[in-house]
Design a protein around this nucleic acid. Structure first.
Length: 206
DNA sequence: CCATGATCATTA
DNA sequence: TAATGATCATGG
């Protein structure tokens, strides 16, 4: 199996800048929504494919390598802004209690992340152009990181004092602990990056 | 069956 | 319009 580094992945992804993701999905045999069903994760799968990855690094329980994320952007008054929040990683209550921010998967992923901006028009995703690819290297003393850490600590503290169930998407300024489960009664949680954070990240990366 | 991808639906 | 909470397809 071939090892894909961040640099290589970005290089691969940049070859597809400006292209239509939907078409690429078709070429790679990835189901989108055309089967009549709704595959909400297809863009992520396509991107992973384009980067040269196998389709199963997604689980990344150990966060050993880097993360590939895509964000939907839409245009507001001629300016490109993040349309939605972005999932960062699952929350494991026990690990959240045990680890500090810089020990967490959240940080491990955040500091080695590769963002893909995707233009997203409407619900059906007919035109999904790959807008931009950006890699990021956060420093621990970064001002922004300190604020994110504060959010992490807040959420962590709430988990410890009020329990896992008390967490809500309203917590946190830059990151949030939103529900995210299989979707049939079973509910778990994950860290999400708010749109403001996504925007900031792109400003830094530019 | 559950974890992971990320969006969709609902409400304020 | 924005924000939160819930949901779906896929792979192992």
């Amino acid at each position: 199996m071939k090892i894909i580094t961040r640099t290589v992945a970005i290089k691969n992804l940049k070859k597809h800048l400006g292209q239509d993701l939907r078409k690429l999905a078709l070429e790679h045999g990835i189901t989108t929504y055309e089967t009549g069903k709704q595959n909400k994760g297809w863009k992520g799968l396509v991107l992973e494919r384009l980067a040269g990855l196998q389709t199963n690094i997604s689980k990344a329980p150990n966060g050993l390598s880097w993360e590939l994320k895509s964000v939907a952007f839409h245009t507001v008054k001629g300016e490109l802004v993040p349309k939605e929040t972005m999932a960062i990683t699952m929350i494991n209550p026990e690990e959240l209690k045990a680890h500090s921010f810089f020990e967490s998967h959240c940080w491990a992923k955040l500091k080695a992340i590769v963002f893909c901006a995707v233009e997203w028009d409407g619900k059906n995703a007919e035109s999904g152009r790959l807008l931009k690819v950006a890699s990021l290297d956060f420093a621990e003393d970064d001002e922004l990181i300190q604020e994110i850490k504060a959010d992490y600590d807040f959420i962590r503290n709430k988990l410890i004092t009020q329990g896992f169930e008390a967490l809500t998407g309203a917590d946190g300024k830059w990151i949030q602990a939103r529900t995210k489960g299989p979707g049939h009664g079973s509910i778990s949680r994950a860290f999400y990056a708010r749109t403001g954070l996504v925007k900031k990240i792109f400003e830094i990366a530019s």
